[in-house]
Amino acid sequence: MPLLFIPPLALMDKILISGCLYGLPVRYDGKDNLLTDSLLQQWQQQDRLIVLCPEVSGGLPTPRPPAEIQTDGTIITKNNIDVTDAFLQGAHQAVMLCQQHNIKFAILKENSPSCGSHFIYDGQFNGTKVTGQGLTAAALTKMGIQVFSEHQLSILYAVLDS
């Protein structure tokens, strides 16, 4: 009969999670996007979650004007201020945090100009979404981190369990 091996919690893979999904009021409008999912609660109890809001880490205040990625790759606020550098700094902070904690997985807020993993807004501030990634999601993907949206927790669970 095989022995069951349960790895110590310290050896379990860490997961980067967007601060707004964790319940921090860091969205552009000063609110959160708190996820109340049993898987997330389990990972929290296992001390697997590393929380980061790339936009706040990049130096942007809360609240702040909404921002969207433009066709040229810059990120502009609704009142026409270029905040690309802050978004790039936040992406860099996320990469550094993942390297520091050997993070291979991330749960990021879909549609965000930082965290969108599959969709972002089209840059026209009219609510239209297009296929694409936010700056942080793209930077993490480029370094081999598997990025999941808040709608893909069961997929992440299956990957972690394999």
Results as ranks from 00 to 15, higher is better:
residue 1 M to G: 10
residue 2 P to F: 10
residue 3 L to F: 02
residue 3 L to E: 03
residue 4 L to D: 12
residue 7 P to K: 14
residue 9 L to M: 08
residue 11 L to V: 05
residue 12 M to Y: 09
residue 15 I to V: 14
residue 15 I to E: 13
residue 15 I to P: 07
residue 16 L to W: 00
residue 16 L to I: 09
residue 17 I to R: 11
residue 18 S to W: 02
residue 20 C to N: 13
residue 20 C to K: 07
residue 21 L to I: 10
residue 22 Y to I: 02
residue 22 Y to K: 07
residue 22 Y to L: 06
residue 23 G to N: 04
residue 24 L to Q: 15
residue 26 V to H: 02
residue 26 V to W: 02
residue 27 R to C: 06
residue 30 G to V: 03
residue 30 G to Y: 00
residue 31 K to W: 06
residue 31 K to I: 01
residue 31 K to M: 08
residue 32 D to A: 11
residue 32 D to C: 05
residue 35 L to E: 13
residue 36 T to M: 05
residue 36 T to Y: 03
residue 39 L to Q: 07
residue 41 Q to M: 01
residue 43 W to Y: 10
residue 47 D to M: 12
residue 53 C to K: 06
residue 54 P to R: 08
residue 54 P to Q: 05
residue 55 E to I: 09
residue 55 E to H: 08
residue 56 V to M: 07
residue 58 G to T: 12
residue 60 L to N: 09
residue 60 L to F: 09
residue 64 R to M: 07
residue 67 A to D: 10
residue 67 A to G: 11
residue 67 A to E: 07
residue 67 A to C: 12
residue 71 T to K: 13
residue 72 D to H: 01
residue 75 I to W: 06
residue 75 I to T: 11
residue 79 N to Y: 11
residue 80 N to T: 10
residue 82 D to Q: 07
residue 83 V to T: 11
residue 85 D to W: 04
residue 89 Q to C: 02
residue 89 Q to E: 06
residue 90 G to Q: 01
residue 92 H to D: 13
residue 92 H to Q: 15
residue 94 A to Y: 00
residue 94 A to Q: 00
residue 94 A to G: 00
residue 96 M to K: 15
residue 99 Q to M: 12
residue 100 Q to A: 00
residue 103 I to T: 09
residue 105 F to N: 07
residue 106 A to P: 08
residue 111 N to P: 08
residue 113 P to M: 10
residue 114 S to A: 10
residue 114 S to K: 05
residue 116 G to L: 01
residue 117 S to H: 04
residue 118 H to L: 10
residue 120 I to M: 11
residue 122 D to R: 01
residue 124 Q to F: 00
residue 125 F to Y: 13
residue 125 F to I: 01
residue 125 F to V: 03
residue 126 N to V: 13
residue 126 N to L: 13
residue 127 G to M: 10
residue 128 T to V: 10
residue 128 T to G: 04
residue 129 K to N: 12
residue 131 T to V: 15
residue 131 T to F: 15
residue 132 G to D: 08
residue 136 T to K: 02
residue 136 T to D: 03
residue 138 A to I: 05
residue 138 A to P: 08
residue 140 L to S: 00
residue 141 T to F: 10
residue 142 K to Y: 08
residue 142 K to R: 15
residue 144 G to N: 09
residue 144 G to D: 06
residue 146 Q to H: 15
residue 147 V to A: 02
residue 148 F to Y: 14
residue 148 F to M: 05
residue 149 S to N: 09
residue 151 H to F: 12
residue 151 H to Q: 12
residue 152 Q to L: 15
residue 156 L to G: 05
residue 158 A to G: 08
residue 162 S to D: 14
residue 162 S to A: 14
residue 162 S to M: 12
